[in-house]
Design a protein around this nucleic acid. Sequence first.
DNA 1: CAGCGGATTTACCACGTGGTAATCAGCGCA
DNA 2: TGCGCTGATTACCACGTGGTAAATCCGCTG
Lengths: 360, 360
Amino acid sequence: MAVTMRDVAILARVSPKTVSNVVNDHPNVHPDTRARVQQAIAELGYRPNHSARGLRSGRTGVIGLAVPELRQAYFAELADAVIAAAAKRGLSVIVGQLGGDREHEIELLTHGLPQTDGLLFSPERLGTEDRDLLAYVDFPLVMLGEWIFGGPTDHVTMHNVSAARAAVEHLISLGRRRIAVIGAHPDDETRVMGPSNLRIQGYREALAAAGIEHDPRLERVVAPWHPEDGADAARQLIESGLEFDAIFTLTDALGLGALRALGEAGRVVPDDVAVIGFDNITISHLTMPSLSSIDPGRTEIAETAVGMLVERIEWGAGSSRPARLHKAAFDVIVRESSGGMASATPKTSSRQPAPQTLNG
Amino acid sequence: MAVTMRDVAILARVSPKTVSNVVNDHPNVHPDTRARVQQAIAELGYRPNHSARGLRSGRTGVIGLAVPELRQAYFAELADAVIAAAAKRGLSVIVGQLGGDREHEIELLTHGLPQTDGLLFSPERLGTEDRDLLAYVDFPLVMLGEWIFGGPTDHVTMHNVSAARAAVEHLISLGRRRIAVIGAHPDDETRVMGPSNLRIQGYREALAAAGIEHDPRLERVVAPWHPEDGADAARQLIESGLEFDAIFTLTDALGLGALRALGEAGRVVPDDVAVIGFDNITISHLTMPSLSSIDPGRTEIAETAVGMLVERIEWGAGSSRPARLHKAAFDVIVRESSGGMASATPKTSSRQPAPQTLNG
DNA sequence: CAGCGGATTTACCACGTGGTAATCAGCGCA
DNA sequence: TGCGCTGATTACCACGTGGTAAATCCGCTG
């Protein structure tokens, strides 16, 4: 069996409680005693038992992160940032994959992840129809993204509307007027506030502000948002015979597929068609051509979300504080696909914090 | 506070122990009693406390997975597969990122990850010099990859030598003779058995078997293995003026960079230069052109590793069973970068299990 | 109807930790 | 020398669960 406080206590000739006090940096411990105990701890290689500690304190020191699939670069990079942010605070992260399964997501929201003190949840299939579920959540929860926007939980998300608008404004600044968008979702009452609709809204706002006529045929509906889907959508767009000189893909994954489809069809990027994505996943600066994108402020999202979750955990289960919303600042990253420099190293630009009151 | 067995017991008018027996599917429980207890459990929404269970049983139901960075596609996809394999067995996974930090890796190996029953560890900085560390490991451990190959621990890895050889043989079958390789590591005694050296060995074997003269200048040393490094190496190769008609990159990440550098330099892939990578990360079939690769059998690796770890956990800490080694079967995936069809959907080929006795 | 044996159920306790409150040591001062 | 006070240490116990062994129940035999 492992070394316990009892063993340390015997060796240091003190009580187990004193060992506990030393381990937890309790103030009133005599320096000599402290030294003797630490010596014993080192000698025996004592390590606190987290299960016992968890049982006693009700805390496990572990938080959960639930995403659809780590395989998708966006979620992998999100997880990377979350794990790093949690590590800074001495927390471990259990990563759960829900695979875009609605049942799993509902189950998770009702019970939480076992073994954890709280949950960061980036759902994919839940909609406003599930908002009621949040009323029964009895564990610390912070939502990533805004599927159930407006529910009584903390949210950390991005400026979907204004960032999308900035992306399209960038395309317009290049002189493009026939700007297609890939990734719209079918009109779905339950996801009105989902990222797809918000980004589409930003797209339309940018067009309207520039006095460009809105052609609904250039809004291409695609779900899900995997690269293959982006390629398919771009092919259909090309085959449709519609004229277009730019594409805004609602994610980089879609953008990668679109770049590929354009290449296959012999359309030169950015000369014939400028492309910009959204998410700024790592691979985007290495494609051929490199993909312009919106950097959603992943680090800020992760650190804020972990911070909020820690606060909720510390407040305790009973407290019903008001839900908070944080939107991370974004950047427009101009690369080759929209006329940026031909370097493999990305050039960043135009940091736009945008006010928190904006609904996007 | 949360609902406990005691609460359930009171409602069902039985002892807490009987509740425990019901929860754990103990054989000798009267059907009526079982039903009554289950009814009470449902009514109160009882959920077992994992900390208490962990304290009593010494198991947490959580395993650790330690990788350098989730941001790297290879590790993200590995984590994806491991989490899925663990979920099948009812285990959760805590993911730790060591960031390629040697100190962290040593620390991890001496203490394990808190809160877990065992560890899957994919080290980056440890070498044979650290083999001694393994002697003191007192928790269930399965290594992914072979940095400390030959140490007294279970390993799950891939057929580095024969898979690399198959990749190069594929290039040779296309008629290529001047085949460069990107990703060699500087001669380092401590990493003789690392993937870099093993894959280079496969490369040399393929050349030798085909009677192609080995030109050391075509072996490009690169570390680390990020896409940027692959691009740099390819640029240097081009600038060197050396003649070459194919490149084998030791990872897909390097390959992505190489594709980019070749494109910038106006070399047409695969007409001027055929390229094949290693790892078969998801993005590879979507680049322009799509990247041929070696599929290392990620699912098999993950399931085997989790299975081995579970066995070690069940055997208990004291048991000193002999170390095991498993090498997953691999596939050569031919895509556009080495003359495959111009489809975005990958075409697989040539499954080569290769005997377990092979040292690669 | 006592006695028996297997099926059920229960009492009791320990797992390792840390909160609470009681105890104890040492010092200054009357 | 005795008292009070503060700092240091300790005894005791509960957190929720599940192993062990003892207790209880029930149907059936002699």
